[in-house]
Design a protein around this nucleic acid. Sequence first.
RNA 1: GCAGAUGUAAUCUAGCUGGUUAGGAUUAAAGCCUUCCAAGCUUUCAGCCCGGGUUCGAAUCCCGGCAUCUGCACCA
Length: 495
Amino acid sequence: MPVDVQSLAKRRGFIWQSAEIYGSMAGFYDYGAMGAMLKKKWENTWLKYFMGLDDNYYLIDPANIMPEAALKASGHVDSFTDPLVECTKCGHAVRADQLIEEVTGAAAEDLSPEQIDSKIVELNLSCQRCKGHFGSAKIFHMMFPLDIGTKGTDKAYLRPETAQGAYLNFKRHFEIMRRKLPLGLIVIGKAYRNEIAPRQGVYRMRELIQAELQIFMDPETFSDELDMKEMEGKEINVQLVDMRGKQDVQSMPCRYLIDQYKLPDFYVYHMLKIQEFYLDVIRVPKNKFRFYEKSEKERAFYNRVHFDIEIDLATLGGFKELAGLHYRGDYDLTKHQAGSKESMEVSLDGRRLIPHVLELSFGVDRNVWALLDLHLVDERTGVLKLAPSLAPYTFAVLPLMRKDELIPVAREIHTLLKNDFDVYYDQSGSIGKRYARMDEIGTPFCITVDFDGLEDNTVTIRDTDSSEQKRIPIDELERIARGLASGKLLFRDLK
RNA sequence: GCAGAUGUAAUCUAGCUGGUUAGGAUUAAAGCCUUCCAAGCUUUCAGCCCGGGUUCGAAUCCCGGCAUCUGCACCA
């Protein structure tokens, strides 16, 4: 029986649809015991890596609910919407702008509800199903609206992206962190979008987790802060716009992208950092990773440069967007300056400027799913080959058999390790079955107490990647465990 | 949201031309056995998506809802 990612995710406690016992709601998912740990470790790994890019990068945690005024200023209230008209007779709802576009052939995207109503009268449009009359146009918000307070008069929304919380906090953090650029604000948290038709599992959700680094910087000096030498001789996997249909991925030198393709050098620098994160830290196979350039038409107008980060995922049928790198210019702070009437200008070395934003935006749920998709190897049973830093449990402690001589020693080792590491203990069934269980949840190392070990105070350590074992003294277990867990010591280097 | 298909233990699935004690496999739990990779034996737990209707009788037929998959649309 082939191992199916989705059923393993359910069976072993990673992720499944929310509110199952009530029949579920599309677009909402719950993380279970293994999934919550896996997600936390992905987030921690991500945070450590990206916060480490500069001493002036920080984790913050803004509110999930935002006042209407802020989202009005950001543009979401007006453009994160679809106009709908509903038939008064049969209740059939259609996109009003598309309806008008179909008939007139002209773009109707920017029409107000009033304009749509008069267009419908003018063109004498009626319901395609029952020929009934259309009611007046209503705006369907992709944001979830909320009424705050007893009278419900304070309009607010669940945030559609975490980025806005960082922009709203920029001015204060610039002050708190002693007026330096670049300043990085990181948010890991939920965002909410009322998707019309969520599909493809966790790929499109109505409640999703984002991990974002917003770098506020001076475009004229930002490059000076970065170690550009790191890019020498390095190549980046890309699919540029004009490669579409010809080539899925091509490896291109950083220098080419900067000198010939005219991308800003700080942008390419961050492409390289993101690529290193995926290839070295997350262990994505090189041929399954690429930056996908968005054409001018596809990207939002305020994004000066926009590549998606895509990974080839079997469960989702090809390269899929897992993150984005967006050079947004000064669009966001300028908008919030206008909306809030608070100056976003900063003064540095006698220069005054509104900082530009380079945004590194990651979809956490998609990335966690990708871990399962990429690392689940089907070897008669499922084997999840996760890096020690990502696995829900780093170690399992197992007595070879359920025997009175072995169990106390195994218990003791479990106690020894569990304060410092995530350790699973299991003594039921056969040893093979217990290894298989650990394989399925991606535990990289199994420590087994056997009869030989009782004689000479040793245990064996089994490596999930290779299923090989080595014997080590119990005295050295803590030191070795620390090395293996941190990745500083590799299993193959153990004697 | 539209069209089509689908929905049976934790997982995978048989039954679905109406009457079955709803069958199997895997998993899980308990025990026996077992000196390293889902072995074997015994036992146990557990199921027809939800709500109506037709019928003497519904997992099976009909209607509605919810969900999933595929295509279209959507994805500032």
